[in-house]
Amino acid sequence: MRRTARHLGRAVSLKGRARPPAQIRAASALSAYAHDRRRTATLTVRRRDHSHSHGHVPEGDPDYEVTFRIRKTGETKTVPAYEGDNLLRLAQRHDIPLEGACEGVTACSTCHVVLTDDFFDQLEDDGDHADDREEDMLDQAFGLEPTSRLGCQLRVDARFDGQVVELPEATRNFYVDGHVPQPH
């Protein structure tokens, strides 16, 4: 009952409350995959690094604000973010329905997000572009767009402050929406 715990844990004082979600617990075991060499090296503006704070919610005043927009419903949610926050975990912490099936190890494309043109370009200009591994998974994402990225590969810094990150529409009915049998 992870979700219930995160929803309502604040209301009660229970020992079990600080138990991190499974995907976070497991991610540390797979840190060889989760470790993002390139981006760690290029981030220079970090004030505090919460990137290893798996499981516990960062404390203190948040550094930034990031807005998530769910395209399907048009709903937006602006959440406080900390320097070094992983965008996937940030979304999950605030119950934004970003999936992350592989737990952030670039083995699926369920944390697919779409950035604004300007923000995407800014990251590109700064050399923070998707690596081959991320691109390989993006290839398999639904509704891939030119400014698509994987949430699990993005770490929040000053450039993310005030940005709007969109969650593409996930539902797609394969058969009704025109299953095209592959001719051979």
Binding site: Q23, L30, E103, V105, A107, C108
Partner: peptide
């Protein structure tokens, strides 16, 4: 492809319901 199998952890969590 052990990284693909990490989805099992999510399923284990489902099974705790």
């Amino acid at each position: 492809h052990p990284e693909v199998k990490s989805v099992q952890d999510d399923f284990e969590e489902v099974a705790t319901s």
